[in-house]
């Protein structure tokens, strides 16, 4: 935890200095982000390719419900999918709604002395909030890279700011995102067993995201950064004609950008790759039809087993005595020798 915190602060400080030093602005504002994007894309693809390189020798779905067997028994089409469609459905539930995480709460509702039920439910809820708000914030940021700004983004912003608080209008997504991140961090710090299993590389992405979102919130609501100038710079990157705008930009923006670049660079080499990995998880992405449909193991070794002939050779006389049918009678066997 401590190491991660120091690392994030140091990163932020470096970015601040970079943003405040005129000569380094090009490096921190343009070169680094562009490198980061390249590293992210290349790293992401490389990781997926690397995983995909290893085969799936066996079809091992974890079944979360009734299999399809007899016509009159109702199968669980999504939790124990028999078809490709069902499997896609299961994956969608998993990716979009965190189905497995939601399981945590189901049974506890009934017998439930409070604590376990709530804490589990919180994990599902805040994980979901975090991911969706992050997505919304991510999409909202496209307004900096597209000109004219697509109508869809405008509509999204209207909904996001529907509470009509403050100037500039408060976007719920950003605030919830920040809150969810704080919850996830507090959970790691306060739940004893979670704290025991957490590694510095669990805290680092969390703190980095808190820094990223925090600096973003500051830029919008407190520092009230000059959007037009920032857009001039981001459009420069987007159109591949990068330049540092003439008007000054707050160093805080460079901190924001620095955290983002770090996140992009770290992403492919960290646990954040669960984003891609979940699609390749063999306990989820395969249908439960393994007795009906052949699954190929590319490295299936040749069969070596003790054959019936070897078995009978060992036990022939005993089997004969017991009246068990034989392929070769003791007499035939004796005659051969």
């Amino acid at each position: 935890m401590f190491i991660s915190l120091v690392a994030v602060i140091v990163l932020g400080a470096i970015a601040w200095m970079g943003g405040a030093t005129p000569g380094l602005q090009y490096l921190f504002g343009i070169v680094l982000p562009m490198i980061a994007v390249v590293v992210f894309l290349a790293g992401f693809i490389w990781r997926i390719m690397d995983w995909a390189k290893s085969p799936v020798p066996f079809s091992i779905p974890t079944t979360g419900g009734q299999q399809r067997s007899l016509d009159w028994i109702k199968p669980a089409r999504l939790d124990s999918p028999y078809t490709k469609t069902g499997t896609v459905g299961r994956m969608l539930l998993e990716v979009l709604l965190f189905r497995s995480l939601f399981r945590n709460t189901k049974a506890e509702l009934r017998n439930g002395p409070r604590l376990v039920y709530w804490s589990s439910k919180w994990l599902w809820l805040f994980a979901l909030l975090f991911h969706y708000c992050f997505l919304v914030v991510f999409i909202r940021h496209f307004r900096f890279f597209l000109d004219p700004v697509p109508v869809a983004i405008g509509m999204m912003e209207t909904v996001d700011g529907i509470m009509q608080i403050g100037v500039p209008r408060l976007f719920m997504s950003g605030v919830i995102l920040f809150g969810a991140l704080l919850f996830l961090l507090m959970r790691r710090l306060c739940d004893q067993k979670l704290r025991y299993i957490s590694l510095p590389n669990d805290y680092f992405p969390l703190l980095l995201l808190i820094g990223l979102v925090g600096s973003g919130l500051c830029l919008r609501y407190i520092g009230k950064a000059d959007i037009a100038t920032i857009k001039e710079m981001t459009m420069g990157i987007a159109t591949l004609s990068p330049h540092i705008p003439a008007l000054p930009i707050s160093p805080l923006f460079y901190v924001h950008l620095g955290f983002l670049s770090t996140l992009l660079i770290v992403f492919p080499f960290s646990k954040l790759m669960h984003m891609g990995g979940i699609f390749l998880s063999p306990t989820r992405n395969l249908p439960n039809n393994t007795r009906a449909v052949h699954h190929t193991n590319p490295w299936n070794p040749p069969k070596t087993y003790r054959t019936y002939a070897e078995y009978e050779n060992d036990f022939r006389d005993l089997m004969d005595e017991a009246g068990l049918p034989l392929e070769i009678t003791p007499e035939q066997a004796a005659a051969k020798e």
């Binding site: 990781r47 690397d50 995983w51 995909a52 290893s54 085969p55 799936v56 020798p57 091992i60 979670l194 299993i197 957490s198 590694l199 669990d202 646990k271 790759m273 669960h274 990995g277 979940i278 390749l280 998880s281 063999p282 306990t283 490295w299």
Partner: peptide, 14 residues
């Protein structure tokens, strides 16, 4: 040999 092993070792978020 096992994608499962590789993926499971990489993606746990604890």
């Amino acid at each position: 040999k096992y994608r499962s092993l590789k993926v499971f070792l990489d993606i746990c978020v604890r």
